[in-house]
């Protein structure tokens, strides 16, 4: 317990020292503050924008796109995985195509999405979905295949039907992989949405970053990045919490 506290204190100290060196470098002009910014200035800026609500409203716009993309992408991926698990012939048919699409850097599709959907919410969602979908699909398929053969034998020896085996053995076996896919997919959905905002503009966090950068305001960029780190860290923490609560059974007693 005391060790944990010491480590947490150590982490804060590290960040503080880093900021101190940064501040000193900028103040003495060892590196030009016009490029590297200055912690005292961008921290003030961060709190100002937090208080005046501009960061909050920008975050909400980004988070709206993230939430829609995450939900749509996840539902599509789970549905695809379900169909491909029930009809393995479809998986054989589609897997090379899916692999090829997955190998394509999706960011390169954003101009096309802008062309199709304009500059608003939908193109950002499309960008997020294009990433989320493939991540969760590959995790879920891997999960469905990771079923312990002993469990299938047990199910057969107990006389379970095909649909019972699917519901009671295959789906629960895939749950850990599905949640790992959801957690990773969420972070990458943010990536997709932010990238779309960097390219297409609008009112989200990504747009703020490109705006500050284009106006030679590194302190504005860093203030926005702090906001972004807070958003992604919170999202990951929430997902990890949910993941832990559905997979209690994976924890041996002595590690609780």
């Amino acid at each position: 317990m005391t060790l944990d506290l010491k480590i947490i204190a150590g982490r804060f100290l590290l960040v503080f020292l880093w900021a101190l060196v940064w501040e000193w470098t900028a103040r003495t002009g060892a590196l030009p503050p016009a490029f590297i910014g200055q912690p005292s200035i961008f921290l003030t800026k961060f709190f100002e924008h937090l208080v005046d609500g501009s960061f909050i409203s920008a975050s909400l716009i980004t988070l709206e796109a993230v939430a829609v993309a995450f939900t749509v992408g996840a539902l599509l991926a789970l549905l695809t995985a379900l169909v491909m698990t029930v009809l393995p012939i479809l998986e054989k048919l589609f897997s090379p195509i899916i692999d090829a699409l997955n190998a394509l850097p999706r960011v390169a599709l954003i101009p096309l999405f802008i062309l199709w959907f304009g500059l608003g919410l939908i193109q950002k969602v499309a960008s997020g979905v294009s990433i989320m979908y493939f991540i969760l699909l590959s995790y879920t398929m891997a999960g469905a295949k990771s079923v312990d053969p002993d469990h299938l034998l047990l199910a057969r020896s107990l006389g379970l039907s095909r649909s019972e085996i699917f519901l009671k053995i295959i789906i629960p076996s895939a749950v850990p992989a599905i949640f790992a896919g959801l957690r990773l997919g969420l972070i990458y959905t943010v990536l997709g949405v932010i990238t779309a905002e960097l390219i297409a503009g609008g009112k989200g966090i990504g747009t703020l970053v490109s705006y500050y950068s284009n106006t030679f305001d590194p302190n504005g960029v860093f203030a926005t990045l702090i906001m972004l780190i807070i958003i992604t860290s919170s999202l990951t923490a929430i997902m990890s919490r949910i993941e832990a609560s559905v997979s209690k059974w994976r924890t041996p007693l002595n590690q609780e």
């Binding site: 002993d150 469990h151 034998l153 047990l154 629960p172 749950v175 059974w249 994976r250």
Partner: peptide, 12 residues
């Protein structure tokens, strides 16, 4: 009833 070499307990 059949019992397997490994326990085959469902971990969840």
């Amino acid at each position: 009833a059949r019992m397997f070499a490994r326990d085959a307990l469902l971990p969840w």
